[in-house]
Amino acid sequence: MEGILFEVLARWLHFVGALVWVGHNYATAVTRPRYMPLTAADLSDPESPRQRALMQREHGTFRYASLLTWGSGALILWYRGWLVDALSLHGSLAPLGLGMWIATLMVCNLWFVLWPHQKRVLGFVPASLDERLRASRVTFLSARVNTMLSIPVLFLMGAGTHGIALFG
């Protein structure tokens, strides 16, 4: 009974974390369907509408949601004794394992590519105007790569649980 409750709670956290994290990407994809590069004027004037919008945007929750999602997913696999077989893409756990590998790439992309560049764009880390403009392009591409990768990951999450017969 406790085991089932633990797994249901972990799965719930996994869903909620994924929605908060990837929901950020999807919201941006819908509200800004085309890339609009920041300009020197946007970044040099703290009162410019785009700089104000940037500063008011949420910068922490989705990053920690990515850790919650990854951690709860890994916990479920570990609790079931599936972690090693999933990560080695063994048998019917291959879809889930592949999803976890791609999701791991996404977490690394978010924390080690997007966030360090975003800190430059926002001015949390000192950088020249040129560097900040270049960093804003990197953050955009990094986010879009994660948006693209989330599509197969969501498929593999579903296939791993409900579509084993398709790949077994």
Partner: peptide, 30 residues
Amino acid sequence: MLKLLDSSAVTVVLGVTLTIVLAALLRLAG
């Protein structure tokens, strides 16, 4: 290549294409 990601619609098409390719590979490997 990365410029393709400037468009949300193309990003989704690339994601769906990648999904189909990976699903096909998993099916073949299974």
